[in-house]
């Protein structure tokens, strides 16, 4: 007998199951909405899980103030179209403290702009479960993380005390102050994500598609000059190049890829023939191989 369900059907069903389990068992869930492609897939799955009800939890966007303008526009449009509740977390003091993507050390920058505001927002709203878009294929440390990942009151992850996850049974019980990070798309790969975006015609931020954009090249990264705050070196002038992004972070730190791919299938084609993996574009993940694990232990998603 041939298989009735395709791999995307099965992945979709598993993710929906996870969303529903959390909503049935957690008191105050929230979805970490980075507005990237993985978040867009997550949101699509969440809408499917609870249809015809809207997703019964708010979206939390950790904004650094250095986000791409297209990304913010896409976020606001999505929230409006689907009638979602949006919470924006931002480190208001960062600017006064002189923290910016140009001068601040990348580890300190991500701590101040991403990890800290995230932890603060989770605490302030009393969220006890947060959906995140982490995938096990992204990095070796993620490959071993559970779908339900527990954080102590200080939001730290302890890889030694993970609970075993059997069948599709998830133990969502926790003590006061503890919270769960839940990764509904753990078992998806980057290729699955793109195939699903194509199949479901999911609207994603246009930055993923190639377009001539004003760019400069620095330390091997192609950076897009997204607004007038971008500091140009003396004599440096932005050049128009057809580029797209494989991952979206703070614009002065996120490298673009030179590409002509302006449709989802072209992107998949490029990816299949590509030679560099996704996280290379993110300056934050560089460094020693185990750096992601260190960050997770500190509370980074």
């Amino acid at each position: 007998m041939t298989d009735t369900l395709t791999h995307l059907d099965r992945l979709e069903a598993e993710s929906i199951h996870i969303f529903r389990e959390v909503v049935a068992e957690a008191e105050r869930p929230v979805m970490l909405y980075s507005v990237g492609k993985d978040s867009s897939v997550m949101l699509h799955l969440a809408r499917k899980a609870f249809y015809p009800s809207p997703p019964p939890f708010p979206m939390l966007h950790v904004a650094s103030g250095w986000d791409f303008r297209d990304l913010i526009a896409h976020r606001d449009r999505t929230v409006r179209d689907y009638g979602l509740e949006l919470i924006v977390a931002q480190n208001a003091e960062a600017e006064a403290q002189g923290i910016n993507p140009f001068d601040t050390d990348s580890a300190l920058y991500s701590e101040a702009q991403l990890t800290e505001p995230l932890k603060r927002a989770l605490d302030a709203h009393g969220f006890d479960a947060a959906f995140g878009g982490g995938r096990r294929d992204e990095e070796k440390a993620r490959a071993k993380e559970r779908i339900f990942s527990f954080r102590n009151a200080a939001h730290r992850w302890d890889p030694k005390t993970q609970r075993p996850e059997l069948w599709n049974l998830y133990n969502a019980r926790k003590a006061k102050g503890e919270s769960i990070r839940v990764f509904p798309i753990s078992n998806w790969t980057e290729l699955d994500i793109w195939q699903y975006i194509a199949r479901e015609k999911i609207d994603i931020v246009p930055l993923y598609y190639s377009k001539p954009r004003p760019t400069v090249e620095r330390d091997g990264l192609i950076l897009v000059v997204d607004d007038e705050r971008f500091r140009l070196a003396p004599g440096e002038t932005p050049t128009l190049r057809p580029v797209r992004f494989r991952t979206l972070g703070c614009y002065p730190l996120t490298g673009a890829t030179q590409s002509e791919a302006a449709t989802t299938s072209r992107i998949i084609q490029e990816m299949l023939l590509a030679t560099t993996s996704e996280r290379q574009g993110r300056a934050i993940d560089k460094g020693q191989a185990a750096s992601m694990e260190d960050k997770k232990q500190q509370g980074y998603f």
């Binding site: 369900l5 995307l8 099965r10 992945l11 195939q195 194509a198 199949r199 299938s265 998949i268 299949l272």
Partner: peptide, 13 residues
């Protein structure tokens, strides 16, 4: 690429 993707839509798991 379109033909390739069509074929890969029907993969099982």
């Amino acid at each position: 690429i379109e033909a390739y993707l069509d074929r890969h839509q029907t993969k099982s798991l």
